[in-house]
Design a protein around this nucleic acid. Structure first.
Lengths: 206, 206
DNA sequence: GTAAAAGTTTGCAGCCTCTGCAAGTTCGGT
DNA sequence: ACCGAACTTGCAGAGGCTGCAAACTTTTAC
């Protein structure tokens, strides 16, 4: 019963989804073409065929339309990380917990490449992306704490979350520049994290 | 001659410095008390006894007044990192290059504790803090590349920069919550970075 | 099928941040 | 003391964003 309800989007639901997608596509395209400072909310709304007031029913800020919402639905990072078998070392476990997100990004490659290019070309957007990531990292903190038996407010779980987040973002930006397979890039950065940041055994890296 | 000129601030210089400091102090205090959304540029200017138009002669945005300018002067992160003897391992070298900044933050402890509390309580400020760090990170990339002989666009220098940046931010926010000595906290987080992110030898951490 | 309820869009006014412009004021140099 | 440079300030306006309420669309209940 509850499943049937969730599976049957109404015309309303569909129209909302379409409007949201249109706004995001318009924002991304226009900012890609002209730069963030030269695109107004009115421009974006016009391109998506809604009023500016409606824009703000979908996005709190202009930047949000460019950056898009969080990655959709699915189980939380917390649940995914705890679902990885306990005998998997921590960093590979985090990678595994992220693999669905990574696959989704890879499957929408063109869209994401545009988005990341826009972020790179409009410098005010990257800190926003990073800050977003850091807020979402709280789920990772609590999951790492649960896996390791450490208190959530101790250094290690927090560090694990922020460092894997930073490594992931670094891999993303490299993928956007000249990468093929996002998963491989993330795995590579995570390996550095796992073994330690020392050039002695990293100098063979490209 | 040139030195005498630099050493003798005019009344103009002194007044500018005073106004700038007054604006920053007012911004920090008011936002701490009321929250960012409830403090206007007019409030801040009024408290500092200047007009709102003058405010913008000093700061590009309201947020900038709260966060203050970048850490002052001094040699770039790039220069400092390259000045560390080449036989010092990379992560300790980065820590050493940062030590002057860390000492300065520690010496203005109360001011920074207020500032970090304000950032924590007003999450829209976090991206700005991150953006501030990014300039230093870019300088770190080029310096790491020079130290290691790797190309600046290869993975390792970029990862070194983003990971030490993230580690530093984590240490800062922990220091703001319940820390005593910022340098020790940063060193601790950097040690995790150096040896690798694995709970096996980190479980003794608090 | 119809009417009412619920949800969504939209126009509008206004607050706030921020910018360019130019007149007025203060400071520094001669 | 005078003049030019530097700084302050008032003003108007653009753009982002919010609350409000009327109008419109879709869904629900009978």
């Amino acid at each position: 019963m509850a499943e049937t309800e969730a599976a049957a989007p109404t015309r309303r639901d569909r129209k909302k989804q379409q409007t949201r997608a249109a706004l995001m596509a318009a924002a991304l395209r226009l900012v890609d073409e002209r730069g963030l400072e030269h695109v107004t909310v009115e421009d974006i709304s016009e391109a998506a065929d809604v009023s500016p007031r409606t824009f703000f029913n979908y996005f709190a800020t202009k930047d949000d339309a460019v950056l898009g919402g969080p990655l959709p639905n699915g189980p939380s990072m917390h649940d995914r990380l705890l679902a990885v078998p306990a005998d998997v070392p921590l960093v590979p476990a985090i990678l595994q917990a992220m693999s669905a997100d990574i696959a989704e990004i890879q499957s929408e490659r063109d869209f994401w490449l545009t988005r990341l290019r826009v972020i790179r070309n409009n410098s005010s957007l990257l800190p926003l992306l990073i800050a977003r990531g850091e807020c979402a990292e709280q789920e990772t903190v609590t999951a790492v704490a649960a896996r390791t038996g450490l208190p959530a407010d101790s250094l290690f779980p927090q560090l694990a979350a922020t460092l894997t987040g930073a490594a992931f973002r670094t891999a993303m930006m490299r993928w956007a520049t000249a990468g093929d397979n996002l998963y491989d890039l993330v795995r590579e950065t995570f390996q550095v994290l796992e073994t330690g940041l020392a050039p002695t055994h990293q100098e063979v890296m490209r």
